[in-house]
Design a protein around this nucleic acid. Structure first.
Lengths: 336, 336
DNA sequence: TTGTACGCGTTATCAA
DNA sequence: TTGATAACGCGTACAA
């Protein structure tokens, strides 16, 4: 079955293609009666405008790209869901650009996709959003983009973020208020900006409570389950065990839970464990995990909205900060 | 910076645009020396062909669509990863079509995307692959597609699947061989074909071992953690508790683990638990989960490859069956 | 308020 | 082996 074109619609409605175009694009200056005739014709033919044709003819492709790199299935899924939801509202199509396993071909690939697909702009999520070389290259190409949680403001593009540092402080304060004093921290990958902020928040709050920095045991992890498990084993082998462990993300916290189970350490009676992100695992492990809810979906939704506004030429705020909140579940309690 | 076009390349190479086109598309009948000149020009200009233009002019868009609907973040992530990997190999771009939350607008939406984007074909994953009405509509539109794990072969399109029934039989046999006789089964959503196959495999193997069907307690779940938790609570409240529980997927098995922990039932000494899928959670829960590895990534990779062959007009096998394997972890053992 | 004619960057036809 | 030129389906000047 041949694809319906604007000519078919114009013929059926008895107008020129330009008028059909006007109706499609909600331009003013079309007589209501004419508009209705055209709309009826479009409906009858089940007409769908050709994106490639619009893209070629007009400057705009009505296509935007979402650029991401691994973090985790849940993170990617939430980011995508947020972006998809916003696009669906506005009739924009989303092009996904996964940079997983791309290595140093990343920049080249992203630029190629931009040129090939004619996307109108990009939403860039961490850690790619902190790739300065890419940002500079995109800027040189004149690409419009919005970044999620970058580690700088070197570029004038809008930024959407949450306050990782304040959130980490809040969680730390919560553990301190429960009565914990020896609190272990499992840090995330130092090349992720949010990891650094979370560690900073932890340290500052500890200091604010006058805790001796020596009783702060900070172990380095790499954001995955295994590294959380190993870091916790090291901490629990220590003579002065912590009574609480705060992991920089949920996956590592889930690893910490396993390490405690292995050693027969009861959670939360003998050891409190807290995570960060509020991903799916937080509700699946036993005991369920106290954590910080990171509004990933909302951040992607907001970033996508900003990008679309930007493309339309609207003014948008340079920084959008979204709220987090603590989710208290079963893995934390006062020390024995 | 203006986008480079085929004219720029042609001018620099001192040939016509048609020749550049020939080189790009690996058509034969171009003198090697000419080809090299053109390739050098393309490289020098960092030329990227315009997808919309190719799509309009030629019949092909070099774009394929991946259609999916929720299942889970991990499932979607793996499917995407497989499809992306295959596309990357072949210079094809992937368009994602999430049908989550689309309800009865699903068919309309998918058809609209096909018409608008001019994708050359679709890879359709379950449960959408079993949506007969959609399949019929796509067929009527003459759309090329490959289905993953559909529940029928009503349509002649190629199918990629794994043998859920045999896998479930294998897991059941494993539990029986360990010495279990009272085995509980947590069934998945009956509207998912694979759920029905897994239940069938469980039942057949039990029967093959001459187990009295009354000692088969089958509880209905809906594929999520919570339903696995509740189903297990019901089973464990029973006077004749099972000594092993086989859940139709990992999420429900993770729920079963929590239920056992809540009641102080030791895993695996007092209760063995097995899952299905080998998703990320299987390695994160404690104890780690014995499960069946479902080759989701490979299935998507294969399906994408088949689709691309199909688009090229090649012959492809009607059914591609991929292998599974059992992953023995810590959640199963002989009964006490 | 509506229509005509041209151009967007490719591929395809056919001639050279 | 190559090239001129006409599509592809739509947006945009500009004219009516």
């Amino acid at each position: 079955m041949a694809r319906k074109t604007i000519d078919d619609v114009a013929a059926l409605a008895g107008v020129s293609i330009k008028t059909v175009s006007r109706v499609m694009n909600f331009e003013k200056g079309v007589r209501p009666a004419t508009r209705e005739r055209v709309e009826a014709a479009m409906a009858e033919l089940n007409y769908q405008p050709s994106l490639p044709a619009r893209s070629l003819a007009g400057g705009r492709s009505n296509l935007i790209g979402l650029v991401y790199e691994n973090p985790s299935a849940n993170y990617v899924f939430n980011v995508q869901s947020g972006a998809i939801a916003k696009c669906r509202d506005l009739g924009i199509r989303l092009f996904l650009q996964s940079c997983n396993d791309l290595g140093d071909r990343l920049i080249e690939e992203v630029l190629a996709v931009v040129d090939q697909t004619h996307v109108d702009g990009l939403v860039i999520t961490p850690p790619v959003s902190a790739n300065h070389e890419l940002i500079r290259s995109l800027d040189a190409r004149g690409v419009t983009f919005v970044r999620m949680a970058p580690d700088d403001f070197i570029h004038g593009s809008p930024v959407v973020e949450m306050d990782d540092e304040a959130a980490a402080r809040e969680m730390t304060a919560y553990l301190l208020a429960l009565g914990h004093r020896r609190i272990g921290f499992i840090a995330g990958r130092p090349d992720h900006y949010s990891s650094r902020l979370r560690l900073k928040g932890f340290r500052e709050e500890m200091r604010a409570w006058g805790i001796d920095p020596d009783s702060e045991c900070v172990e380095q992890g790499v954001n995955d389950h295994q590294s959380g498990l190993e870091a916790t084993r090291r901490m629990l082998a220590n003579s002065s065990r912590p009574t609480a462990i705060f992991a920089s993300n949920d996956d590592m916290a889930a690893g910490a839970i396993v390490a405690a189970h292995e050693l027969g350490v009861d959670i939360p009676d003998q050891l409190s464990i807290a995570g960060f992100d509020d991903t799916q695992v937080a509700g699946i492990v036993w005991p369920t995990l106290t954590t910080i809810h990171q509004p990933v979906y909302d951040m992607a939704f907001a970033a996508t909205g900003l990008l679309i506004d930007l493309i339309k030429g609207l003014e948008v705020p340079p920084v959008t900060k979204l709220g987090y909140h603590m989710v208290r579940r079963a893995s934390t309690a006062p020390p024995a």
